[in-house]
Each structure stands twice: as C-alpha cells, then as structure tokens.
Design a binder for these strands. Sequence first.
DNA 1: AGGATTAATGAATAAAATTCATATTTAAAT
DNA 2: ATTTAAATATGAATTTTATTCATTAATCCT
Lengths: 309, 309
Amino acid sequence: MSLVSILELRHLRTLAALHETGSVSRAAKRVHLTQSALSHQIKALQNHYGLSIIQRRGQAVELTDAGRHLVALAGKVLEQIQSTERDLAKISQQATGSLRIALECHTCFDWLMPLMDAYRQHWPEVELDLVSGFHSDPVKLLEEGGADVVIGSEHKQQRGIIDHPLFRFEILAVLAPEHPLRAKRILHAADFSNETLITYPVPDDRIDLILNVLKPAGIHPERRTAELTVAILQLVASRRGVAALPSWGLKNYVDHDYVIARRIGSQGLWSDLYASTLTETASRPYLRDFLTTARNTCFATLDGIIPLE
Amino acid sequence: MSLVSILELRHLRTLAALHETGSVSRAAKRVHLTQSALSHQIKALQNHYGLSIIQRRGQAVELTDAGRHLVALAGKVLEQIQSTERDLAKISQQATGSLRIALECHTCFDWLMPLMDAYRQHWPEVELDLVSGFHSDPVKLLEEGGADVVIGSEHKQQRGIIDHPLFRFEILAVLAPEHPLRAKRILHAADFSNETLITYPVPDDRIDLILNVLKPAGIHPERRTAELTVAILQLVASRRGVAALPSWGLKNYVDHDYVIARRIGSQGLWSDLYASTLTETASRPYLRDFLTTARNTCFATLDGIIPLE
DNA sequence: AGGATTAATGAATAAAATTCATATTTAAAT
DNA sequence: ATTTAAATATGAATTTTATTCATTAATCCT
C-alpha cells in the first residue's frame, strides 16, 4: 500500500471493459492488451487498495463490491473525459465535417438509430446522414465520397482504407416455434436443404449463412427477401421459411415465443463487424468519437457480442 | 494525433498542480517530479490534441482555453477519485481510528478549521480532535499517543517519525500603517532593535524571526505575547509593537489598511510546514486523505504558498 | 549588461507496463 | 473418472514509456 495513488485511467478503462464483457480475456481484447496485462493491472490495484476487486466464479470472473465502486467511478470519469475531448475538438475547430454512414448490415439499424440521436447532440456541427440502399462496392463508395463510413461484415485489407473493428456477434437460425427442426439444439447445413431462406434483399455472397455454411456444403435453398427485420421475423413466425439473424436482436422475440433461435454448426456461425473509413477520415476527432461511442453503446446494450482483434 | 487517447490521471494531476501553482517548476514540486518531466508531459498532450494548453507569458505560464477545460476536468475527476478511494477505505474497514492534531503553528488554525469541518463529513468514523496548548516535545507527543499528527514548522529526521511536507510560506513583518519603518520595502534585523515584538506565547526558539534573523544578528527586542492572530494584529495596529506572521493570513488586513506588511531580509523569511506522524500512522488511508485534502485546500485558498520537496 | 529564474529540448537513464511462456484452476465432454 | 478445453494467474524477459540529466533559450530584475 503505497503512499500515493497508483490509479490511472488505464485501470479505469480496464475495469469498464471488464464490466462490459464479464471476462478478463474479452476485456483484454476490448482494450487491445493481453489477458496477462489485465491480470497484472488488477493485481496491482488489489495490492494497492488491500482489497479484492474481482473474484473468480468458476472460469468466469465477478466484480466484488469494491470492483463495482471502481466501475461506477470509471463510468463517470471516462464519460467526462470523452466530453472534454469533444470540447477540445471544438476548440481546435476539428468538430465539423460530414459523417455519412452506409450500412452493409441491415440489422445494424437497431443499434445505430439511437446512437445517431445521441451523437447528433454531441456534434451539432457534423453533418450526419445515413446512405440508404444496397451498394455493391463499399470501398468505391468511400473513395468517391458517397459515404464516410461503411459499417459492414467483411474486412478487406486495402490501402487507403482503414477497417476499425467493432465487435463479433453470433448469427442464429430463426424458426417458427412449431418448426420440425425445433428439436435440434444445433442446426447444420443439411437441415436447410428443404427450407425457404428469408433474407434481406442482398446478393448471395453477402449472406454469411450462404457464403460460409450452405454454399460450401453444396446446398442452395430457396430464397425470399424482406427489407425489415420485423418483416423477416413475421414471415418466419408464419412458417414461410427460416432466417439467420444476429443473436442480439432476437432476445425479445424469443422470450415471447414468437420464434425460436438455434445455433448454426457446433461452433456457431459468427460474423465480425467493422467500420471502414478512408485513412484520412480515421484521424478526425468526430469520427473517433463516433467509433468509441458506437462500441460503448453496443457493448452496453447488445447481448452476446464479443470484442474483436 | 494518435487514434486512442493518451490522457492519463498523471496528466490531470499535473494540470491541476499547474493551475494551483501557476508555474511549471512549482507544479513539478507539487507532484514530486522534475520541471522537465512536466514540460514533456504537457508537450505530449499538446501534440496529441493539436492544441496548446499553456502559453508562455514572460517567464511565467498561462493556461489557454483548452488548458482550462482540462483543468476543470481534472478538478471533477480527481475529486471523484478521492471520493471513491474513501469508499474503498470504508469497505476495507480502514476508515476508523483517531486523528488528534497538535498545532505548533498558531496561524494554522486559519486553514485548519474549515478543513476539519469538511474532513469530518468524509470520515465520520474517524475520531477527529485538536490537541490544544503548547507542547515542548512534539515527537514525544506522537510516541506517547498524545497526538496522531503534529503540524509544525520544523523538520526533524527521526526514526519512527515521518514528516509529510505541506508547503512553504513567507513570514512578513507586520507594522502599523503609520509606523516609521513604513518607508522601507524590506526590513532587516537591525530594524527590530528598538521594537517590541508581538508573538504567540511560545519559547524564543520556536519563533522563526528570532531564531533565524534576530538572534544571529545579536538583537533581542522586547517581547509581548497574545494567543490569537487577531489579538496580535490589534496590538500591532494600535502601535504596541511589530509582529511577524505568515503572508497568507495578512491579505485582508493589509487590503483594508489596518496594518502594512514588509518583507524580512532581501530573500524574505520563509518557513516550511510539515505534518509529522508515526510511521505506522502514515499508511492509514484516512491520514493520507487528510494530508492530500490539507494540501489541496491550502493550495487552493492560501495565497503565496509554494510546494515543498 | 549581467545574474538569476524559468521553461524547453534532446539524449540518456530509469521505471513501468506489457508480453511471453507456462502453470493453475475450473468446467465441460466423453 | 479422465480428458479436453477454456479461463485466469504468475514469474521472467522484454519492450515501451516516463522521467531525469544536462544544456540551451528566453525573460525578468537591478
């Protein structure tokens, strides 16, 4: 127990991530460090305060009372810092510009809408827009100035473009509650052979289930499309077919027995979400703030998502 | 301008000190680092945000608008951290004990009283008391448990005792406005030879003016004592003699032309204030909090004090 | 002008945080 | 039960970073 406080923001960022993710190793990814680094950090804090901050609960980890105090502190403090950094951006006149968002992932509407509302408050000078419609070549869209950010599932290593990792999520098969496949805990490619697949109106190669599961297995089910997530769910519930959707948007519908959700493949079908920008856009404060806020709200509100990188 | 925030509490502590002390080198002492370290820190921040935080104003420095934003942030954040650390001390059941304060420096009442009121709120479980009266051997007082902290002007290197530096302050000669010596900007030992010196009722060797200025010069003026600072000032104003008091307590009286204050010797007469405790007491959270709070409030409220160490 | 005080800077050093490699613990699977 | 997998903990090695040291530049005061 040293005479001066060793606490640094690094620790608070770690604690916040720990709270968000519920595990040391996931938190480590969240703050771009190794699990070991976080373990050392936590140990240092515990020694310093003579208290345990986390407690192993089996292979997961749980915050103690002291840990929750620090997490609460982290929440407040990091929020205030973000706010001040926005002020600084305004002072340095880097608070204006355009942020036109193109969505490759239709379900992202769910979390993007409230985020945009909050963001508008913080950056009144930034021209915030959604670029609607499907775009075959998102990189081109960025380069030609049609959009400033593309939120999409695939990560392309291309010069001039930076892909900012957002998070990893699981895609679950969605079935009507009475569907014959309800008995299976896990669905495999073959299970889809006689089904109608209900998807958003995008090409085959933009649908993870088809690209990574069905096509490799040589299975080509019928397809039917709908624009909105609710519409897809409605079709599934009325037994017109099955769908594959991110786990996070399903909870409410599953809880109300409107549909049921099943894992796809023994490891599950996962997808990684990135926000891509031009390199020059990446350094703008308002873009960086958009990214951190996006990650923060997603990790706070979306169940079952996992940090990337 | 990196992609992630490099801001750490270290920076905020530095900024707060900079605000308190108004100079990089004084701030450096305040946070126990070198002037160079702080210069580097500030430069790193400025590069990171692409803004200047301080501006050289001659040989002093001034905070910019951005700097003030960060200082405001620092104030809030450091306060919240202190508060959480108090909570942690309560959780670890280290929030009880006694804090009996003995004062060697009579004027310290001025800042100690409001501090104690605030402190009592934060540490309701700590038995807070003032040990009154003059004590010839403060170390003995600590060892025998008569007090837990001694606030005094002298620094003794003694095992088992830790002297926590508080601050350095200037002692000014106080005269009646019409006093013949009013014409001199600086007073020297000889100027006191025909004066009556008005002091607190303590031995000669506890009065810095006598110990460090008059005695070495072989000058032994008459003495008269009073218990309270106001009483001393009243006697000075009514021309019963002159006094030597810390600069910080004089401002109000000087501003109202009740008395005038003059520097003693060309370099001024300075005194260092320490809070001494037993080594074991030093590690207790409630004592550490007392010290930081004391320093914080003193640097925030007392004019002309300088960090020590 | 000269001495003293303060801040800035670059290189050297010291300190620390992080990673690496591995052990340990717990849960799940067979 | 035994094995496998997944997670955290730990000590030593390493890298990164902060700080100091030594010096220069700028400013103030007499």
